[in-house]
Computed example of a mutant assay.
Amino acid sequence: MTSIAVKTRNGVTRARYRPTWADVDLGAIEYNYAQVKRLVGKNVMLMVVVKANAYGHGTVEISQALEKMGVAYLGVATTDEAVRLRDHGIKTPILILGSVLPEEVKIAKDRDITLTLCSHEILNEIKRLTKHDTDSDTKVRVHIKIDTGMGRIGVWHEGALSFVKDVANEKCIALEGVYTHFSSAGRDEFFTNYQIESFEHLLISIEKNWIKIPLRHAANSIATVDFKRAHLNLSRPGLIIYGMYPKHTFPKLIKLKPAMSLKTKIVFIKDIPPGRSISYGRTFITQKHTRIATLPIGYADGYHRNLSNKAEVLVRGQYAPVVGKVTMDQTMIDIGHIKGVKIGDEVVLIGKQGRHEIRIEKLARLAGTIAYDFICSISNRVPRIYKY
Rank of each mutant, 00 (worst) to 15 (best):
T138K: 15
H132Q: 13
S184W: 15
L366E: 10
N306Q: 09
I350D: 03
A230H: 06
R18T: 15
H337Y: 10
K325T: 15
S261Q: 11
L95N: 06
D226F: 09
Y242Q: 04
I375R: 00
C172G: 08
Y194L: 15
N10L: 10
I350K: 01
T264K: 03
V178L: 02
D87C: 01
G368C: 03
T92C: 07
R128Q: 09
G70A: 06
S235Q: 09
R14Q: 15
G238T: 09
E121L: 13
V341E: 06
H120E: 15
D188Y: 04
K91R: 09
K265S: 13
R316P: 11
T264A: 08
V76Y: 02
S198H: 11
S261G: 09
E61V: 10
R18E: 15
M244A: 14
G336K: 03
H143A: 12
T283W: 03
T283K: 05
I297E: 02
H289E: 13
T283M: 06
E197L: 14
L295T: 03
K342I: 11
D110L: 03
G58W: 00
Y33H: 06
T224R: 02
D80M: 09
T130N: 10
N53I: 03
I358P: 06
N124Y: 08
I360T: 14
V50K: 01
K109L: 11
E189P: 07
T2M: 14
K352D: 15
E357Y: 13
G354L: 07
A223M: 09
I4T: 12
V322F: 06
S379W: 07
Q35C: 09
G238V: 08
V322Q: 05
A52Y: 00
I378S: 08
R305G: 10
S205N: 11
D135H: 03
